[in-house]
């Protein structure tokens, strides 16, 4: 079994880790970097709770090895707020009651961040298509869509 020295750059900060090859990026973020906002709902790629941004695009952190993320810019939910100021998506999720238990929320936030960074004027049908990447068991999704739309509007201002 191979052990590797890896440096992960997460939210602009370098984390030096020693880990086995089999450690997923999600586990490394959680256990190695102490960033437990990235959640694991299935560990086989379906639920999207582990969604993080890798060089600006959303990926399933459970379906990448930590060793593969060396050299990439990783963004997680912990990096969204600027101090006391929430990211417009975080604020919109609160305002529109887009979370109940909040377990899926970090994954949805990162997915939505990537969506709006790619296309701030994304049409509703395309938003639904992209948001269908992740599962939420509590909200029935309606308020998640509302929140993303509201954040898109707020970010356009």
């Amino acid at each position: 079994m191979s052990e590797h020295a890896v440096t992960l750059r997460v939210n602009g900060i370098a984390h030096r880790l020693q880990l086995p090859a089999r450690r997923s990026l999600a586990d490394a973020l959680r256990d190695g970097c102490g960033l437990t906002g990235t959640h694991l709902g299935c560990e086989h790629g379906v639920c999207g709770a582990c969604t993080v941004l890798l060089d600006g695009v959303p990926v399933r952190a459970c379906l990448m090895l930590a060793v593969q993320a060396e050299g990439a810019e990783i963004r997680t939910v912990e990096g969204l707020a600027q101090g006391a100021t929430l990211h417009p998506l975080q604020q919109a999720f609160i305002d529109h009651h887009a979370l109940q238990c909040g377990f899926c929320t970090p994954g949805f936030l990162m997915l939505a961040v990537a969506m709006l960074e790619e296309d701030p004027d994304m049409p509703e049908a395309e938003m639904v298509h992209r948001l269908s990447s992740n599962l939420c068991r509590c909200t029935g999704y309606a308020n998640i869509l509302k929140a993303v739309q509201a954040a898109a509007a707020a970010m356009a201002r």
Binding site: L35, T36, G37, T38, H39, T76, V77, E78, L80, A81, L86, Q90, F93, I94, L99, G102, F103, T105, P106, L109
Partner: peptide, 8 residues
């Protein structure tokens, strides 16, 4: 919860 500071 929106900051990833939950304690699950």
């Amino acid at each position: 919860l929106v900051r990833g500071q939950g304690a699950f």
